[in-house]
């Protein structure tokens, strides 16, 4: 048995070396996985990866729903009905997509509040905050459009209120609404534009932004929060205090010398 295991381990190492030679994948993974991260606030920092996990679920279940969803005004509702009642696990996939979206909004809100309170948007990490805010706006737009794709009363009227708000913008009001409506009344064009926004346009912007968000995170490393550095800060303050004390005593000695000198 041990001989087989050794040979297997040997072959595994060869494959790893072959891969390392060509793609340096192994060293890349090592750099990612074994990077030091703060321990005290560990559970706080899981919010970020929880959001990432939920977004991947949304992508996954979203694509699965696409297998059955039909974006025409006549059949959108029927296709959803079909998913819910006839497809195996249809209710599960759609439920995960719906509740995943709600949970995602809550978790992304908590993640933002955690980042705000721990002050991790301070230089040099400002850009990461800006990308994060763009992400939260995109996610809420996605949730908003997704709600209306069902083309039932509830979803449609929520989307209509959104469009009516857009129609109040001073200058480009009329243009914005007719762009979103695809004409001057609600019809098949509205649903196809809604479908484009929700299924391709926004995710196409969201995915690279998440990549940028992660790259920026890795670039400067996880800041964590102030309580991660309390000991080092204490040492720093103590050292500065000694310096001030020395300065103070040093200035006294000079006075004595100068007064004694006269």
């Amino acid at each position: 048995m041990t001989r087989i295991r050794d040979r297997m381990a040997e072959r595994g190492r060869d494959v790893a070396d072959w891969l390392e030679e060509r793609t340096r994948l192994v060293s890349f993974m090592e750099k990612q996985l074994y990077e030091p991260t703060p321990r005290r606030g560990m559970w706080l920092y899981t919010l970020g990866s929880a959001t990432l996990f939920l977004i991947t679920i949304q992508f996954l279940t979203g694509i699965l729903l696409l297998f059955y969803y039909v974006p025409t005004t006549k059949d959108a509702w029927n296709s959803i009905y079909y998913i819910m009642h006839h497809v195996y696990f249809g209710q599960l996939i759609r439920g995960m997509h719906f509740w995943g979206a709600n949970l995602l909004l809550i978790v992304i809100g908590l993640h933002m509040i955690r980042t705000f309170l721990s002050g991790s948007y301070k230089p040099p990490r400002e850009m990461n905050w800006v990308v994060g805010v763009a992400l939260i706006i995109l996610v809420s737009l996605l949730a908003f459009t997704g709600y209306a794709l069902r083309w039932d009363q509830e979803g449609f009227y929520a989307w209509e209120v959104g469009m009516k708000i857009a129609s109040y913008t001073p200058l480009i009001g009329a243009w914005a609404v007719s762009l979103l409506l695809g004409g001057d009344t609600v019809g098949p064009a509205t649903l196809s534009r809604l479908f484009v926004f929700h299924v391709w346009l926004m995710p196409a912007i969201l995915a690279p932004l998440i990549g940028v968000h992660l790259i920026l995170l890795r670039l400067h490393g996880e800041f964590g929060a102030a309580f991660e550095y309390s000991e080092r800060l204490a040492k720093l303050n103590k050292r500065k205090q000694y310096e001030r004390m020395e300065e103070y005593f040093a200035s006294d000695e000079e006075e004595e010398e100068s007064s004694r000198g006269e």
């Binding site: 996985l33 074994y34 030091p36 991260t37 990866s49 929880a50 996990f53």
Partner: peptide, 20 residues
């Protein structure tokens, strides 16, 4: 540097996994 650094792989990934 953090006061108490820990490896990302075993510890933080564990926590992330449980939350997810």
């Amino acid at each position: 540097h953090y006061d108490e650094p820990q490896g990302f792989f075993p510890n933080q990934v564990m926590a992330d996994l449980t939350v997810s």
